[in-house]
Amino acid sequence: MPSVSSSSSASSSSVSLAVVPRLFCLVAPTDDLALLPALAEVGVDGFQVRAKQATDREVLALTRLVIGAVRPFGAMVVVDDRVDLALAAGADGVHLGADDLPVALARRIAPDLVVGATCRTPADVRRAAADGASYAGFGPVWATSSKSGLPAPLGPASLTRATGPLPLVAIGGVEAGRAGEAVAAGAHGVAVIGAVWGARDPVASAKELVAAVG
């Protein structure tokens, strides 16, 4: 399991970029889970379990399935929202939104987990870094239909303004053509849903994304 600083004053200097995936693929129970090993094999190095309507037991089972499918290829698995389920499943990390457990508390509870924090402004990123986050999931950079209730797209220039305190993982409307643009603007990596699962050939699309984030 990757290790990051447990200090509540963690900064980008205490977080190894090698720990943070360049390409996160979000995974729901309705996705074609049989493709997970192939996605990891072509270079998807991060998987985020996102099952907001599932029971705790269902999330636990899904997380364990994902870990078993992708960890042999060296990929990281994080769980959306739930520190307890991440720990119970033996996941590598957790990704926390604005309404989830505060980052600083999650860091105290789980000092060895990779902790991602959803951020929308440079101030959010600075705060997450001070609280001990490992990376910032930053967005929506472009318009997306994968999640409702999001603010207007921030645009790739917003990544440049937010760089520094933490590795940025750009999310929101990212596809292969935009992944390189996000990295050029300052993102460490990207997170995708539709660009993989909505593609005619998810594995081929993942391969293009891996090449784009380089």
Rank of each mutant, 00 (worst) to 15 (best):
A184L: 12
I171K: 05
P151Y: 10
D131A: 15
V114P: 00
S158N: 10
V125T: 01
Y135S: 04
A162S: 13
G173C: 13
G132C: 08
P153I: 09
S145Q: 14
A184C: 07
G180W: 03
G164I: 13
A129P: 05
T121C: 04
A152N: 10
R120D: 00
A123V: 12
G194P: 05
G132N: 00
T121M: 01
A191Y: 04
G116R: 00
L159T: 12
A162L: 05
E175Y: 12
A129M: 04
V114C: 11
G137R: 01
D131S: 15
H188E: 00
R178G: 02
S146Q: 14
T118H: 07
R127F: 01
T160F: 09
C119R: 01
A157W: 10
V190Y: 06
L168V: 09
A117W: 00
V115M: 10
G132F: 00
R127K: 12
I193W: 05
V169C: 10
A170F: 14
L154P: 08
V125K: 00
P140G: 12
V115K: 03
K147E: 03
P153M: 12
D131G: 12
T118Q: 11
A162V: 04
T144A: 07
G173R: 07
A184E: 08
V169F: 01
P122M: 03
A182F: 06
L166F: 08
R120K: 11
G194Y: 11
A143C: 09
R126A: 15
E175P: 04
V115T: 12
L159F: 11
G116A: 09
P153V: 06
G189W: 02
R126T: 14
G189H: 02
S148V: 13
P153C: 09
A176T: 12
L168D: 01
I193T: 09
P165E: 11
S158K: 06
V115N: 09
V169N: 00
G155C: 11
G164W: 13
R161D: 15
A176S: 13
E181W: 10
P156Y: 12
A191K: 03
A170W: 03
S134C: 02
S146W: 15
A184Q: 13
A136I: 04
G180Y: 08
S158F: 06
G172K: 02
G194I: 11
F138R: 01
R178T: 14
P167C: 10
W142R: 05
L150G: 11
G194H: 14
V125C: 04
G189Q: 00
D124T: 05
T144M: 10
A176V: 05
T118A: 15
P140A: 11
A191I: 04
K147I: 00
G149W: 10
W142V: 03
S145F: 11
T118P: 08
